[in-house]
Write a protein that binds this DNA or RNA. Structure first.
Length: 797
DNA sequence: TGGGCAGAAGTTTTT
DNA sequence: CTTCTGCCCA
């Protein structure tokens, strides 16, 4: 029996061996968080406190789920088939597939990814004749997803103003459309699953009886709905073991609610709060920097990282004249590090926003250094892949209009916009899917539509007994996609990707344990039957609730076996829920370029944090959020704690952005770091002497400014008082007198609408032209300063 | 039906 | 400056 507990430090040991009661593990960066989570599961099972079937472990990314699964099976010989380890969305999908009838969904419901959802919304709005200038589809998408993440259906959303009323009305219509088409978007997966458990007491009781041990990774990233779902599963008696770090909460902008940690502590009456503060990653100075920086944040649960490693090297700071020069310097340093024997893959260049990668990429290319940029187009998001998947979806579910609209005329088969419009009208008239409305379209248009319908029908018949990979290959060929790309000049890559899709199907079938010959659209009998003793681990299993539920009366069939998913449905879910790796670039051993967000969870021997300038990092836009600056600081904290041995911080006096040269001052974060850990490679200029005092009001984003002699900027500076000295700064004339009283079209007291913050009233105006700003008191978001050139306020009649 | 062009917009991102 | 979107024309 392996000694799971060897080499754990006292805090880790305490966490791993806690009794089965609610627990919150505050795990600092590099403190062995994942290890604790995995060892905890293994220990529970080894000690017979749990069987694999009574454990539910949830993560945010597929990557994390895979890692957990992999490391767990390496620790203990567990049959993972019966385990519920996955992402929130993956687990909810699994549950909804199993109980689709109770959830009010067809067995073949399809999942819309973000892009699919947007096109569904556009189609809806077009059909209803809604002005998409006044109601931008993207805003409606945000509105819908936001509502769902708050657990709100259309009739529960506050619709006090006319704008919201329209959105609510569209939300309702969107839901009807999705329901008719048998499609489900990402937040819907969670909300449906949540409602399923709320409304079906036997199901709820079943899962509550089953999942005695609920473990949550990255708890600080959960949103309200996810937390509610967890609470429901936990019920009155199950324990949640939550692991997270409030200091690494960097996803508030997409709904993450750090407050869940406090709520959890309170609502579950958490008695076990364990802090993992021993850091195994970074040298001392780097941790000192991180600790002191994050101490500037107010609402923290409180935590300080420590290390047994020595101070290590100081944090190197570099001030460049321009972004180009910053890149040149960084690449020189990288070269030096490589010469010292450091692997390229151990070097990362981090930045706040993607646009910043360009300058560094350029320099790396000319230096001939292989690099890899994270982010970008991913496998299942490629055009040709989405097309192929659309055919597969249509075979599975003919009502899926999103899939239908995507490929009805791709490859082109003489079905133009006119015809599609006719069809859409008919579909609306008869309240049916586009496919079902085909017989109602007459004439030539009708016959070309009919032949498309025949094509799909033929595919459906001929793939009846095919395995999943065969089906995919067949569809790629029969749809005409392969032929189309063969004829394209640059279709070679796309053809290869389509072949890769067939390979992905093969891999999926084998990894998921389907028989290679299992027909893609039939329920895998072998799986259904053999999966019954889901645990197969110890003699105790006989009494396990997971086993008994299969025969439990009162539950809807064929739901009980959670794995009752056809290979095709499984594969389509997989394609939607896991977009795949972003395109691999350059060689294996390449310098790593990514945003700070993308770097979370990773570590490198040497890290460059670039573009540390006011307006960029912290980003100007975060000034409008009440807690924006604190999140930026947490982001900086995440960035710093990626470094193991060497950390570089750099900024540039001027930077090309959006075709304009911007002049920024160095980030305030420099002033929040312990100065004794910093080693300035360029002379340190005193911020005060150099730039004049800094205003500390709400609109701190204005601390940077565009060069007035160019004056094209939306942000043209009208602030005087900057003491010009050297270089770029010398180009700054005093500019304060130029302020004119140009009419902004707004007045104090006016009611306005902002797409993100909703309704509010103007309480003050200042500046003019491109620089004009308004202070608005929003009903729900408090007072904010908004740049009129940016904010696009609409006057409410 | 598709290409060409003008105009807009441009933090962060997973599912 | 670049990238994407939507529109118009041949």
């Amino acid at each position: 029996m392996p000694d799971l507990l060897a080499n754990l430090n006292p805090e880790q040991l305490a966490a791993v061996t806690l009794p089965n009661e609610p627990a919150l593990i505050l795990a600092g960066a590099g403190s062995g968080k994942t290890r604790v989570l995995i060892t905890r599961i293994a220990w529970l099972i080894q000690q017979r406190f749990a069987t694999p079937a009574t454990v539910l472990a949830v993560t945010f990314t597929n990557k994390a789920a895979r890692e957990m699964m992999g490391r767990l099976t390496a620790l203990l010989p567990i049959d993972t088939r019966g385990m519920w380890i996955g992402t929130f969305h993956g687990l909810c999908n699994r549950m909804l597939r199993a109980h689709h009838r109770d959830a009010g969904l067809p067995a073949t419901f399809q999942i819309l990814d973000t892009a699919d959802q947007l096109s569904a919304i556009k189609r809806l709005m077009k059909g209803l004749g809604v002005d998409d200038e006044k109601y931008p589809p993207k805003n409606l998408q945000y509105f819908i997803n936001n509502a769902k993440e708050q657990g709100l259906r259309p009739d529960q959303v506050d619709a006090s103003d006319t704008f919201n009323q329209k959105f609510v009305e569209l939300y309702r219509a969107y839901e009807q459309q999705c329901q008719r088409e048998g499609v489900v978007d990402f937040p819907e997966l969670l909300l449906r699953c949540y409602e399923l458990l709320v409304h079906h007491a036997p199901l709820r009781a079943h899962y509550q009886a089953r999942f005695k041990h609920i473990l949550v990774d990255e708890f600080q990233d959960t949103n309200k709905l996810q937390y509610a779902w967890l609470k429901l599963l936990a019920g009155p008696s199950n324990a949640i073991f939550a692991v997270g770090d409030d200091d690494q909460s960097i996803y508030a902008f997409r709904g993450a609610n750090v407050g869940n940690m406090r709520d959890f502590e309170r609502e579950f009456n958490v008695r076990h709060l364990i802090k993992l503060e021993q850091n195994y990653r970074s040298h001392g100075y780097i941790l000192d920097a991180a600790n002191q920086l994050i101490a500037n944040n107010a609402r923290r649960l409180g935590k300080n990282l420590r290390t047994d490693a020595g101070h290590g090297e100081p944090v190197r700071v570099y001030e460049a004249a321009t972004d180009t020069q910053e890149a040149a310097w960084a690449v020189e340093e990288i070269r030096a590090l490589m010469n010292q024997g450091l692997a390229r893959g151990e070097i990362a260049v981090l930045y706040r926003s993607n646009a910043q990668s360009r300058a560094i990429e350029h320099t790396l290319v000319s230096a001939g250094i292989p690099y890899r940029v994270y982010g970008g187009l991913r496998f299942f998001e490629r055009q040709e892949i989405k097309h192929a998947l659309a055919y597969l979806r249509l075979i599975d579910n003919g009502n899926d209009d999103t899939a239908f609209a995507r490929v009805v005329n791709f490859p082109t088969r003489g079905i133009g916009a006119r015809t599609i419009e006719q069809l859409a009208d008919a579909a609306r008239l008869y309240n049916c899917s586009m496919a079902a409305a085909i017989p109602y379209v007459t004439g030539k248009a009708g016959s070309s539509l009919a032949s498309f319908a025949n094509l799909i029908a033929k595919m459906r018949v001929e793939t009846e007994r095919m395995s999943l990979p065969e089906t995919v290959e067949y569809v790629v060929r029969t749809s005409g996609l392969a032929e189309f790309y063969e004829g394209e000049r640059e279709g070679q890559d796309r053809l290869e990707n389509l072949q890769e899709l067939v390979n992905a199907a093969t891999a999926f079938v084998s990894e998921e344990g389907y028989g290679l010959d299992t027909p893609a659209r039939s329920i895998p009998l072998s799986r259904g039957a053999s999966a019954a003793p889901e645990i197969g681990f110890s003699p105790d299993d006989a009494g396990d609730p997971a086993t008994t539920v299969l025969d439990a009366p009162g539950l809807d069939e064929p739901a009980q076996n959670p794995d009752l998913m056809t290979p095709l449905a499984g594969f389509l879910s997989h394609a939607s829920l896991e977009a795949g790796e972003s395109q691999a670039q350059a060689g294996e051993d390449a310098v790593q370029l990514m945003t700070v967000h993308a770097a979370k969870g990773l570590e490198f021997t040497a890290v460059f944090i670039t573009g540390l300038e006011e307006g960029l990092f912290p980003h100007e836009n975060s000034a409008i959020e009440p807690e924006g600056l604190e999140e930026e600081r947490r982001l900086m904290y995440v960035a710093i704690t990626r470094a193991k041995e060497r950390l570089y911080l750099s900024f540039a006096q001027s930077r090309m952005l959006h075709g304009q040269t911007r002049y920024n001052i160095r980030s305030r974060f420099f002033d929040e770091l312990p100065q004794e850990t910093l080693k300035w490679l360029t002379p340190k200029a005193e911020a005060g002497a150099r730039w004049g005092g800094r205003s500390d009001n709400a609109g701190w984003g204005r601390d940077w400014f565009a060069r007035p002699d160019r004056q094209q900027g939306r942000y043209g500076g009208s602030y005087g008082g900057y003491a010009a000295t050297e270089g770029a700064a010398a180009a700054l004339p005093a500019f304060a007198n130029e302020q004119r009283e140009a009419d902004t079209g707004f007045r104090v007291g006016q009611q306005v609408f902002h797409t993100k913050f909703g309704e509010g009233a103007i309480t003050a105006l200042e500046g003019s032209g491109a620089d004009a700003r308004a202070q608005v008191r929003f009903k729900r978001h408090g007072e904010k300063w908004l740049a009129l050139a940016v904010a696009k306020l609409q006057v409410v009649e």
